[in-house]
Computed example of a mutant assay.
Amino acid sequence: MSSQPQVSPLNIGIDEASRAKIADGLSRLLADTYTLYLKTHNFHWNVTGPMFQTLHLMFETQYTELALAVDLVAERIRALGYPAPGTYSQYAQLSSIPETEGVPKAKEMISLLVAGQEAIVRTARSIFPLVEEVNDEPTADLLTQRMQVHEKTAWMLRSLLEE
């Protein structure tokens, strides 16, 4: 998806073409983050089994963190001068995280969330070369923070799958 034209001229030391590419990458990150938020919230509502209480609370902590993250990513897109995507159809088009049909068992939920966390790390990492090339430190900082959160969360979820 190509970002829409910027709303007003910006002079922040990053050329327009680079800002557009970064905004496109961040739009994919936003879509992944929102998709994982929705999936995690769904699993929070629908988890069952012997680990119900643990997973119910863990998923709540995770979807709350993701809800805050979507705002940070969207606001960075806006700071670069572009509109942030905000519809389900845009997210479905941009996200690398597939929807989950039905209600999986708890262990499959955990596996799906690990995959989603890792997908977000890959999306964030894919934006880094351009961000570094144009010295976009605020975006680099955001990406670094997001990768740290998602790598740690994936590790914690993965540990639940070990026998």
Rank of each mutant, 00 (worst) to 15 (best):
E65L: 08
F43R: 00
E65K: 03
H56M: 04
L66T: 02
E75A: 08
V103S: 06
P85S: 06
E133S: 14
A74T: 05
M109F: 12
I127N: 00
E99A: 09
G49W: 03
F43E: 01
P104R: 02
H44F: 03
K39D: 01
G81E: 13
T100M: 04
Q90P: 00
N46W: 03
H41D: 09
E60H: 04
G102M: 09
S126C: 12
L80T: 02
E118F: 10
G116Q: 06
L66M: 10
I97R: 01
L66A: 04
H44I: 08
T87G: 02
I127A: 07
L94P: 01
E60V: 05
T61H: 11
H56E: 01
T123D: 05
T48S: 08
P83T: 10
E108T: 10
L80H: 02
Y63I: 00
Q93C: 11
A69T: 06
Y37Q: 05
L94M: 13
E60D: 09
T61K: 11
K107F: 14
Y82P: 00
Y37M: 09
E108D: 12
K107R: 15
R122H: 15
F52L: 04
G116K: 00
E101V: 12
E99M: 04
M51D: 09
A69L: 11
Q93G: 14
V73M: 06
T61W: 07
G116T: 03
V131E: 07
A92V: 14
I77T: 05
K39P: 00
F59K: 00
L94H: 02
R122Y: 13
I110K: 00
G116Y: 08
R125A: 15
Q90D: 15
L130Q: 15
E132H: 13
V121N: 05
L38F: 14
M109V: 04
E65F: 03
E101P: 03
S96T: 15
T48W: 09
F43C: 01
P85V: 08
T54Q: 13
Q90H: 10
Q62T: 05
Y34C: 04
T100Y: 10
R78V: 14
Y37H: 11
S111A: 15
A84Y: 11
G102Y: 12
N135Q: 12
I110P: 02
L112C: 05
L130M: 15
P85G: 03
T48K: 09
E137G: 10
N135F: 15
M58Q: 13
H41I: 06
R125L: 15
G81K: 03
I127H: 08
T54N: 10
T54P: 01
I77Q: 00
A119C: 10
E133V: 09
A79C: 07
L80E: 01
A74D: 03
R125Q: 15
K39M: 08
E133T: 11
D136F: 05
D136W: 07
L68Q: 13
M58H: 08
L68P: 01
G102K: 06
P129D: 13
A106Y: 12
E137I: 15
E99Y: 12
F43T: 00
E118N: 09
V134C: 13
A84G: 11
I127S: 04
T64K: 03
A106S: 12
L80M: 08
K105Y: 14
N135R: 13
